[in-house]
């Protein structure tokens, strides 16, 4: 019997049974599949089927004998059937918009799971919400299909805690290094996919951009126990910063930035901090461990944003502005 057919038959059987179905009866009912060959081989076959069903969200379990009821395999119907999630039209619409944007990007970790999830949340709805045109392109010099492949492998490795081996290109040195990495998690930053994990070459936690990975393999895809544990205090946000000026190039400096009144409402989305009102507009204090990244961001908003302190940050902002001026025909 075709394996898909057997698994569906098994689900249909267990959904219709009130009591657990004993192994002996399963062997009898599925004679060609579980009833022929050595008992060990039959059990192994059933175990593999069980694992696959569990992965698909079928809550199959063994129940011990109780009173007159024989022990056997059963399916918890309440845990199986998807209930009506009770989403309002707005909630469903915005979930759909988000899911569609992620799928349209062509490279999103767990894209296959996402497509199924969207189908399931809309299962009880008579009509699907209108889809807004939202799309998203990940940054990187690689084509979407290979980015999607790498994300798939990495996301699988993150979830199953599998060590990966990879070749990594550094634009700074122009070199490719071979590494073994225990991937702890994936993050999307400024349109680029990154991952963090323990790098066995460097002996510590490092972050990598997915588009700089040249070759990628899971070291032991079939090994039973996971290859590593993620340290309990590990937080993705600590190692893959949200803002470019949070990369750790030096000790953090609190930089004051004056904003024209018009920029005040946008301060949280531009700098990630709330503004303070001043007599001439507003200001923000931003903690930077990569001063140049902050200063150039402020420069791109000139003249409505300006670095006002401390002195070293002001000097750096002026030096960079002079460089731009000199490069564009102006005497500083």
């Amino acid at each position: 019997m075709d394996r898909t057919e057997r698994l569906l038959d098994l689900v249909a059987l267990l959904l219709s049974e009130k009591h657990p179905v004993s192994w002996a009866r399963l062997r009898e009912l599925f004679k060609d599949d579980y009833g022929t060959g050595t008992p060990e081989a039959c059990e192994r076959k059933f175990e593999r089927d069980k694992v696959e069903l569990l992965e698909l969200g079928v809550p199959l379990r063994f129940e011990k004998a109780r009173g007159d009821v024989e022990g056997g395999y059963a399916l918890d119907k309440d845990a199986y059937y998807l209930p009506e999630p009770g989403l309002s039209p707005d909630e469903l619409a915005v979930l759909y918009a988000a899911g569609a944007a992620a799928l349209a990007s062509g490279a999103f970790p767990g894209a296959g799971d996402l497509a199924h999830a969207l189908r399931k949340v809309a299962f009880h709805s008579e009509r699907l919400p209108a889809l807004p045109r939202v799309r998203f392109q990940a940054v990187g010099p690689v084509d979407t299909a290979s980015l999607a492949d790498r994300l798939d492998v990495l996301w699988g490795a993150v979830r199953a805690r599998r060590r990966v081996t990879l070749e990594y290109f550094s634009p700074r040195s122009g070199e490719v290094t071979a590494r073994a990495v225990d991937p702890y998690g994936l993050a999307l930053r400024r349109g680029a996919w990154a991952f963090a994990g323990h790098c066995h070459l460097r002996g510590g936690v490092r972050t990598f951009l997915v588009h700089r990975v040249r070759r990628l393999e899971v070291l032991n895809p079939k090994a039973k126990p996971p290859d590593f544990e993620v340290p309990a205090d590990f937080r993705l946000g600590d190692v893959i910063p949200r803002w470019p000026w949070e990369h750790r190039f030096h000790a953090p400096v609190d930089v004051d930035v004056a904003l024209a009144p018009d920029l005040e409402p946008m301060a949280p989305q531009l700098f990630g901090v709330a503004p303070v009102k001043t007599s001439t507009g507003a200001s923000v204090t931003v903690r930077a461990s990569d001063l140049d990244a902050l200063v150039t961001t402020v420069l791109s908003l000139a003249p409505a944003a300006k670095v006002t302190g401390p002195a070293e940050a002001v000097a750096r902002a002026q030096a960079l502005a002079r460089r731009v001026l000199e490069a564009h025909g102006g005497a500083p």
Binding site: A79, L95, D113, L114, R159
Partner: peptide, 22 residues
């Protein structure tokens, strides 16, 4: 088979992440 299986953990995470993307 009158309703699909519930969401798996992986499906839930994928949907939650997409929501966070937005």
């Amino acid at each position: 088979l009158h309703a699909p299986p519930r969401l798996t953990a992986a499906e839930g995470v994928a949907l939650a992440s997409a929501a966070r993307l937005l």
